[in-house]
Simulated assay, not measured.
Amino acid sequence: MLTANSRVLIIGAGWLGLPLAKAMAKLGCQVHLTCTSAAKVESLKNEKLIAGVWPLLLDDNSQVHDIQKIIELSQADIVVGAFPPGFRKANSGDYATKWQLIAQACQVSKVKQLLMYSSTAVYPEQASICVESDALAFNDKAAKLLQAEQALQNFKGSTLVLRLAGLYGPNRHPGRFVKHMKAVSQIANANMIHLDDVIAASLYLLQLQPQSSPSVCNLVYPNQVSKAQFYQAAIQAYPVENMSFPPVDQTLGKTVSCQLLQQLGYQFVYADSLAAIQHC
């Protein structure tokens, strides 16, 4: 359970990990970070809010004791994995193996809670509403994500898996995604979540009493907006001229449910996915 006195280790100081660290530090937590770049380690040492920062390259040569040593140095009672799966990168190591190493290291240390950021890519693209129990290894990517989630079973403390919908926010404007799209559906729902709501929801869920905290929770906006409507709004707000919009089709798609998150009492920072576009 996250409190003002918590000691937190965030593995990954990137687009999500670094702002999450700063938000936790403002709550009074002692926040520690790991980076894969020596240059970034040095730059983050100047961040007054960060209590400590260490280099950590999670690859095929990583060992449990490497991560355990950093956990012990940080004296962390909460560990957060905020690094991407890296499926497109060669020699990035197996994602599930990375999480096995982290879970095992947490188990032999004094860690009380482990948070993993996963993805709503574990739900098949079909015309249905997907709740947390609907995850399925329907393709290679989903199978690898679920294997990584299952790796948390190596840790016997409190675990929290947050399945993130499509991410956008500062330095990640959804308007820039449009040029890579071959077509956009006028029917399929745009399952999206802004960085600010990812951070706010993470803090909210971590501060719940253990008996009230879920083991898995979707982070996605509740509004029903088609992909075509969302990306039309995104391209209008994107400061790039002469960007053409891809063809619109009638492809069906999933709708990821945030009912559990709402039942737990979370209040979204932004009213819906369209409103959040203005904060990128």
Rank of each mutant, 00 (worst) to 15 (best):
N5M: 12
D77W: 00
L18I: 01
K69Y: 14
Q211D: 15
L206G: 01
G93Q: 09
N218I: 04
D94R: 06
D66K: 08
L160Y: 04
L20V: 10
L16I: 07
Q207V: 11
A271I: 11
Q207S: 15
L101E: 04
A165Y: 03
L73G: 00
I235L: 12
C106L: 13
V178K: 02
P84F: 07
Q153L: 11
W54S: 06
I70F: 09
K69M: 12
V80W: 06
I187S: 06
T3S: 05
Y270Q: 13
D66N: 15
P174L: 00
I50G: 11
Y266S: 07
L206Q: 03
C35R: 10
G157Q: 08
T120I: 09
S119H: 05
I67Y: 03
P84A: 03
I129H: 08
Q207P: 06
V131F: 02
A51V: 07
Q153G: 06
S6F: 13
V240Y: 05
S215L: 13
A190K: 09
A103C: 09
L27I: 02
V161H: 07
A51Q: 14
M116F: 15
T255N: 14
P210I: 06
K144E: 15
G12N: 09
N61I: 10
F83W: 10
L219P: 10
A228K: 06
L73I: 11
S244L: 14
N218W: 01
L18M: 08
S6Y: 14
A201F: 07
N218H: 15
I277H: 04
A96F: 12
Q209F: 01
S185N: 13
D197N: 12
N61G: 13
C29N: 11
Q209M: 04
S212H: 14
Y266F: 13
Q232K: 09
D249Q: 12
L167P: 12
C130P: 00
W99V: 05
V79T: 02
D134Q: 03
S226D: 04
I67S: 03
